[in-house]
Amino acid sequence: MQPKEIIENIKKTHPNIQTLYFVGCGASSSELYPAEYFMRANAHKLRTGYFTANEFNYAPPAACDDTAIVIACSLGGNTPETVAAAKLAREKGAVVISITHDAASPLAANGDYVIVHGFEKSYAAKLEKMNNVLMLAVEVLNQYEGCELYEDMVNGYLHIYDAIENAVSYVLPSAKQFAEDYKDESIIYVMSSGATERVAYSTSICLLLEMQWVNSGFCNDGEFFHGPFEIVDKNVPYLLLMNDGRTRAMDSRALDFLNRFDAKTTVIDAKDFGLSNYVPASVAEYFSPMLITGVVRVYFEQLAIARNHPLSQRRYMWKLEY
Rank of each mutant, 00 (worst) to 15 (best):
V267G: 04
N142G: 15
K45F: 12
V236M: 12
A86G: 05
T196M: 06
M290E: 10
T19V: 14
A137P: 08
P61Q: 08
E180A: 12
N259R: 12
P80N: 09
R315Q: 14
A41G: 12
N110V: 02
V190M: 03
N132I: 04
V133C: 03
I188F: 00
A108R: 02
D256E: 13
E36C: 14
V116Y: 02
A53W: 05
Y123C: 05
L241V: 07
D233H: 15
T266N: 13
G49R: 04
K264P: 06
G146V: 08
E151I: 07
M39K: 04
A304E: 01
H309V: 10
Y21Q: 09
E5M: 05
S186V: 14
L241P: 01
I10V: 11
L158N: 14
E301W: 09
V96Y: 07
D66E: 12
N220V: 10
E321S: 15
E120K: 12
L141R: 09
Y161H: 15
A270F: 02
M191P: 09
Y322R: 14
Q212G: 00
I268R: 08
D184S: 11
A94S: 11
S282W: 09
I97K: 04
F225Q: 04
D65E: 02
Q18S: 13
C64R: 07
I115L: 07
E285Q: 08
A306K: 04
R40G: 11
I6Y: 05
H44D: 15
A125I: 03
L127G: 12
V138P: 02
E301A: 13
M317T: 15
K176P: 06
D181Y: 08
F261T: 10
G26K: 00
D221E: 08
S174L: 12
N131Q: 13
Q302V: 08
A41R: 13
F273Q: 05
L107R: 01
V83K: 04
S28H: 01
Y21R: 08
S276G: 10
A104E: 14
F273K: 02
G146W: 09
G76R: 10
N155G: 15
A94F: 07
S186M: 15
G274N: 04
Y286A: 02
R90S: 10
I115G: 00
Y113V: 00
P310A: 07
E120V: 09
K11M: 11
M135G: 05
E321N: 14
D233S: 15
K129D: 07
S282F: 11
H226P: 01
L46S: 06
V214H: 06
A108K: 02
D272C: 10
V283D: 00
A94N: 03
E197Q: 10
I6R: 03
M1E: 14
C73H: 11
F224M: 06
I305S: 03
I160S: 02
Y189A: 11
Y33H: 09
W213I: 11
L158T: 14
A270V: 00
F178R: 03
N220G: 06
E230N: 13
A306P: 01
P310Y: 09
A35H: 06
D65H: 03
D66H: 13
L303N: 06
V140E: 05
A104Y: 11
Q302W: 07
R246M: 14
L20K: 08
H101N: 13
D184A: 12
T293Q: 15
A270Y: 01
L149M: 12
C219V: 12
M130I: 15
E120T: 11
Y144G: 03
T265L: 08
D221W: 07
